[in-house]
Design a protein around this nucleic acid. Structure first.
Lengths: 366, 366
DNA sequence: GCGGGCGCTGCAATCGATTGCAGATTTTTC
DNA sequence: GAAAAATCTGCAATCGATTGCAGCGCCCGC
């Protein structure tokens, strides 16, 4: 006669969850056998009958693996970190969603954090994530002059950049990136404005620390030159935020003294803006100055973020492939984690022009 | 003579990072002493001189704590899980941001995941988070009939609901919640419409599985009754999405046969919508049907999500306290984690009406 | 009938930090 | 000056799972 088997939850107190040792005892095998039976990858190493029994007992006891314990031994946490500069910008959620979806199918969970465009905070977050032994990192936040990549290298964490790339030949370790062809994209906007008849076109650039802003600026200049036009003006917003857009546009509307035909008119009939978020501020500034979008000054955005089709007037912008961007980045990361030696790759997605109501032929000069 | 001290990184290979044992050896003390010296909470237990030396060596060797190893021993991961139904809905990022900010000051990192409004996915995510030993959970996703709370209870994970609450007396374990006063909020919308002169007011309700949708529906009915009015019509959207809003509004515009004055007119001059996201669809449907927002039918939203001030016409809506909501939830969670016996609390934040351009007096009957 | 081989299972070490307990040292107290 | 108390530090166990190695049994072939 044996004493009655311990109750499944063995006295509710501390070990709220059954461990592999509990299962082993109950099933009459060694813990290592339980481990092998319960891990799909090693299940083939034990007899099917044993595996069955172990599985059955594990279920009955409500056993759940401890990712922490396993991670300690294997040095893998099955966790991926994702850093975004600003979750409030609606282009990120769709990208995140795609990343998450791909990673979830492989059993990874994601640690998402906002850097708030703050390099120090970014470093801190990477440190914390390293502490948590993330298996990989997706960086949508890396700006120039950031330690992000060197930290990753130091901790040996594979990383993939998204919607950002490092300056060419910046001497930093090569890293894969998934970006848009921003140069081409802003070119589409310029072409569209020129086709409408605009000649005096300004550019409202983004913060020059990030590659998207630099590329769009460069692309703008290139394409203007291609059309044989001089840029009417270039202002730079301090950040990719609505408020920075408002401030920059307000400055642009006043115009450098004497540039405009009548002296204090803005020197342009259209402005190609570096990003949709900035456009919201542009609209704000124009409203405040009593200028009409499209009728007085045409505006183009960049990103086609959700909801800009419903702002008034609906924004003409450059659509990027949010979803593909997230998916690709996740896939590349998975590949590089599986095979660390893999050659780095840089994918550039092609954007397209979406014409809505914020652009129109220039108003006739009086 | 001693052999040369091992180089700081001791042969680059596997132990990319120094461990506490490395520091101990280098500093000539025991690992437990290192642990105490490096942990702010126990630093007082060792001599200041020793603590200094240990800290110095740890720095030199580039030691980083392993949250995984510590977590295994302490059963705390310093990680908090956050579940949202749909990150694409712009009300969530600000809430998340607030939560993250509060938790970050306490050294927690956040594991964010989308449930996509799918109960099965939600359960899976909670299981995975339990596996990762999250210390607490913030649920912005819990709908009725979900296992979320029982799972949390089973795993012993403290949880706080946000923007959702459980049906009263549903027999489920008590849990703290931070919500809006939705009943009051929708009442503000009704009051506003009535004050403008509307009498035939419809309600476009949200999916009745979630408490916000139920409360707003109830609040609408109550307030209408208060004014002595019959609800013109109530349609229910299948989800809090733009598309569901479009479909529901399209149905409402056709109206039940013969309800409208001319037989197929919508039976209302205004519609109080359960949520801003739905309003985007409402606008879409009205545009498709050739009806003007405000001029033909007034529309009110709920949430004051970012950017609805720029849609056309700018949406009159009910502003909720995104930021306070996130902060409060985080604080409550921290408190309950520190002291599990703490009484559960339910905080109800008060919303306010923001009048913009989507509401106007009813058009005069011809 | 015996050695080789193979398949399965158990043993024990390990991942890195934490912590109760005990021994060693110093300080306090009478 | 001795006993008691306080203060540090080291020892060793522990958290829960993984895994290299060894051993055991069984089957097969010669």
């Amino acid at each position: 006669m044996q004493p009655p088997a311990p109750s499944p939850l063995r006295g509710v107190p501390s070990p709220l969850r059954a461990t592999i040792a509990d299962v082993a005892r109950e099933a009459g095998v060694h813990a290592s056998t339980v481990s092998r039976a319960l891990n799909p990858a090693t299940r083939g190493m034990v007899t099917e009958a044993v595996a069955q029994r172990v599985t059955e007992v594990a279920d009955r006891l409500g056993w759940r693996p401890s990712a922490v314990a396993a991670g300690l031994r294997t040095r893998k946490s099955r966790t991926i970190g994702i850093l975004v500069p600003d979750l409030i910008n609606p282009i990120f959620p769709p990208i995140l969603h795609a990343v998450e979806t791909v990673l979830a199918t492989q059993g990874y969970v994601t640690l998402v954090a906002n850097t708030d465009n703050d390099a120090a905070r970014e470093s801190l977050l990477i440190e914390r994530m390293a502490t948590h032994l993330v298996d990989g990192l997706i960086l949508a936040s890396a700006a120039a002059g950031t330690d992000a990549l060197s930290l990753c290298a130091r901790f040996g964490i594979p990383a993939v950049l998204i919607n950002r790339r490092m300056p060419e030949g910046a001497g930093c370790a090569a890293v894969s990136a998934v970006t848009n062809d921003d140069i081409h994209g802003i070119g589409l906007a310029v072409d569209h404005l020129v086709a409408l008849g605009h000649r005096r076109i300004a550019h409202l650039a983004g913060p020059q620390g990030v590659s998207t802003a630099r590329d769009r600026r460069t692309g703008f200049l290139d394409r203007m030159r291609h059309h044989g036009l001089e840029p009417a003006e270039i202002t730079t917003a301090a950040a990719y935020t609505r408020e920075a857009g408002r401030a920059a546009m307000a400055a642009l509307l006043q115009g450098p003294a004497g540039t405009g035909p009548s002296g204090n008119e803005p020197g342009c009939t259209a402005v190609a803006v570096a990003n949709d978020m900035l456009c919201l501020g542009v609209y704000d500034a124009m409203e405040a100055a009593g200028r009409r979008v499209a009728a007085d000054i045409s505006v183009t955005g960049f990103n086609d973020m959700p909801f800009v089709d419903r702002i008034h007037p609906a924004l003409t912008t450059i659509r990027i492939q949010h979803d593909a961007m997230g998916r690709q980045a996740a896939c590349i990361l998975l590949a590089e984690m599986a095979e660390p030696g893999l050659a780095r790759q840089s994918i550039r997605l092609v954007p397209e022009l979406v014409v809505r109501a914020s652009t129109a032929p220039p108003a006739k000069a009086p």
